[in-house]
Amino acid sequence: MKKIIYSILAILVFCALSIGTFFISDHYAQRWQSNKLFKAKLYDVEGKTWSIKSLKDKLGIIYFGYTFCPDACPTALNNLTIALEKIDKNKLQFKPIFISVDPNRDKPEIIKDYLSSFNTIILGLTGTDRDLKSFTFNIGATYSLSREDPEDEDYLVNHTVGFFMINSEGVRLPIPYRNNSEDLGQAIVRIKSILMSNSNFKKFSSIF
């Protein structure tokens, strides 16, 4: 009889430990990634450094792309500006952000010029290749140059499609890609509510 009780207890302890470890390791992974996000130095089109702390009370909606991209990037940014006009008329909740992952060609003045075509003010950022690699990796995105000839200046860049929502504490969620402003707006509202309701996560992270 005792043996059975002991083994049940052992199983329970094992389960509790594994669940705990899972949560804590997941939490540490997030914390570790958030720290890397804070450390990555990005700069805006005026050359000022930017970090996720600069978001303050707003939720950033980040899109990774490059200005040479003539189809996917303008389509996505255009959908985003239309979606935000509907769900955030006073521009109080969200901050649309375009991060160029092609710093070699996308100098600040080119990014500034590119973003001037959109209906809303989009924050344009870029950084060194190292900082961009770290930032994209730790947010859950990726990019790579599609360049066979190193002399070729007309190369293309493969990059993650879709948006990421992030707050100033580094809590973030991907917004599944929607190729239509209406659906994108709904997805943003839904992701925002998930992110905001995740207050347990915030309390938890303040312990460490």
Binding site: D71, H159, V161
Partner: peptide, 17 residues
Amino acid sequence: NKVQLHKTVTENNITKM
């Protein structure tokens, strides 16, 4: 200088031309 027909393809959440 150059004109090419491209297709935007999305694989594993990564967009390519």
